[in-house]
Amino acid sequence: MKSIMACQGISKSYGSGDILERVLKRVDLEFFEGQASVLVGPSGSGKTTLLSILGCLLAPSEGQLLIASEAVNFSDKSSLTEVRRQKLGFIFQHAQLLPFLTIEENLAIVGRNAGMDDDDIKQRLDGLLYRLELKAMRYKHPAQLSGGQRQRVAIARALLHRPSIVLADEPTAALDWNTGKTVVELLLEQARMEKAVLVVVTHDTRMLPLFDRILSIADGILSEQAQTAAAENIFYTQP
């Protein structure tokens, strides 16, 4: 399998001296094309910090992040922006669609920002809206959509410019179980179809069996769990 992204000895600390707090401790990790990973752990364990580093939004204190075998230069803001707009797709906890734009416009600006031409944007937009059952929502504003519909739009927005990596931070946190499950299934299906690396942070352990890999983080230390163990875990936690 083709390696898309890799963390090499990544650590993140805040403060210095006696008040040094190490949030991430030497994370080594590799992500492959089309692979869906879920990142779990208690609050404050470093999940969002790791996701922020993977999203080129936060510089690690040590180690390096490789995307398409190239080390990301965290000191060059311009190149970080370029990586984000070309190679990364984001799905946020509350969708964070721009409330003043229609659904179509919310998606189109991402394509324009990535340098796609209008025909390509239209074709891509039509396809994603159809696949995510959002065609009827095309000219509506985010406020007119339900939480689940908004997260489906967020999925479409994350995938529109064909990123090789999609990062999602608790995309189901604001949704009920059934809607959340549908959203995650759709996200997995679309990411696999696009052969994108998918990394999802969640607190909801019931979602774990849906993913290829389960990454667990506690006190800044990352470990990988076997999928069968996770499946057993789900047996005990599902209502």
């Binding site: 999203g55 939004l57 803001k77 311009s78 922006t81 370029e82 990586v83 984000r84 707009r85 070309q86 990364l88 984001f90 946020f92 964070q96 721009l98 991402v110 920002n113 990535a114 927005r157």
Partner: peptide
């Protein structure tokens, strides 16, 4: 902030 995270240039 969302636009910034989505890769819009400063």
């Amino acid at each position: 902030a969302t636009l910034l995270a989505l890769g819009f240039h400063q």
